[in-house]
Amino acid sequence: MGKHVLIVDDSASIRQMVEHTLKTGGYQVTVACDGQEALDLCQKQHYDCVLTDQNMPRMDGLTLIKNLRGMASYGRTPILVLTTEASDDMKAKGRSAGATGWMVKPFNPENLLQVAAKVMP
């Protein structure tokens, strides 16, 4: 059984693309449309990695990460922010929220798998 990844993005096309790519790479995948849905899912079960978009309705990515880091079971889980900008400002915010790393959109499927392999050795 492959590692279980939670994808959080409000864009259906990106969700599908990331899901398909990771499944092709042998991962088990669950998707959520916003931070709130992701948080609800995480409270029910554990995921090996969370990939989250930043800008989303209801709850944004950074708020989700802060919430997850407050949960004992997600203290060390790799959490990546998918973002369109890798500015210092964004990085500072990501770092303080507790994200493991960031990945800039757009990315291609091959890169995504490389990154996934790094964070889930």
Binding site: T100, G101, N111, V115
Partner: peptide, 29 residues
């Protein structure tokens, strides 16, 4: 560049971290 990166990753060894960071130019992360 700079398309992907890690924030603090205390459980990782700094050496490896730096190494990966260095390889960012070719691997873009």
């Amino acid at each position: 560049n700079d398309a992907f990166g890690f924030f603090d990753a205390p459980e990782e060894e700094p050496a490896e971290t730096a190494d990966s960071s260095g390889s960012g130019d070719s691997e873009n992360w």
